[in-house]
Nucleic acid binder design. Structure first.
Lengths: 137, 137
DNA sequence: TTGCGTGCAAAGGTTTTGCATGGCA
DNA sequence: TGCCATGCAAAACCTTTGCACGCAA
């Protein structure tokens, strides 16, 4: 998975450094671009997209597609994430659009249940629970 | 949910008539446009998008986003899906696109769990489990 | 030196929107 | 008649791509 040859460029270092400061937070590509701009670092958006894609391939960050029109979200998983890191589930409020991420054993159970009883390998990265959040319901 | 006032326009009727002929098949917005073109019916793409959105709101069709860049898929769920019928969960295979309908108590439990423990009112009509089906995994 | 990474600009494709017109109730 | 739906075109949006240059190893 991370056998691909990788140069250690300045851009990659800055990006990784930033992501490490926001673990468990959802970041969009344009968030990253704006952070770079605020830092005075001039980095093309193509580079941002390409680096993010690489980091996803390497398993260092995860990519979430919450809904088709809003931009994809990325989340730092830690450099050691290939070691069975904690899985995260997502709930999206249909009214206010808030995104909630849950770390919950009970939800983990249903993944096992789906696989064992229904032979369906659920992908937590892609699955989003839609509904109404606390305030909106 | 389906209290919204709705005119019964010709375009809506044709669209619904088409969708009913392809239950369990995933259709894109441009598929619909091409179907209309083949039928000789001149219907703007804005109308297609707006009608599809309405039908999703009414629970008559479901919308699936397989990946952020390819177009969204729609699927006919049946006109009676809003009648508190049996609650049905959906699993979508990311590889072959197959859609699986599940009636399962254990899945029903997580809905209760999400509401009681996490104060999140999950919407089963909208929520789709993404992953790999039996054959594809 | 090799060839991957970068940056800019432009393209790509899907979906949304503004506004005048048409059609349902 | 009142209001919603339609249609056209243009815009918006995120993301990808082509190509020349720069930089890591």
């Amino acid at each position: 998975m991370n056998t691909r040859s990788k140069y250690k460029t300045k851009q990659r270092e800055i990006l990784l450094g930033y992501l490490e400061t926001v673990p468990g937070v959802h970041i969009t590509a344009s968030d990253v671009c704006e952070y770079f701009k605020a830092q005075g670092a001039k980095i093309g958006q193509s580079t941002v997209y390409r680096q993010l894609e690489s980091l996803v391939d390497e398993g260092i960050i995860n990519k979430y597609i919450i809904d088709g029109n809003s931009p994809a979200c990325f989340e730092y998983m830690g450099a050691d994430s290939h070691e069975e890191a904690e899985v995260c589930f997502h709930c999206k409020c249909e009214k206010c659009g808030k995104l909630i991420h849950l770390h919950c054993d009970e939800l983990e159970d249903i993944r096992v249940h789906l696989e064992q009883e229904h032979h369906f390998k659920m992908d937590p990265l892609r699955t989003v629970f839609y509904g109404l959040c606390d305030q909106c319901s």
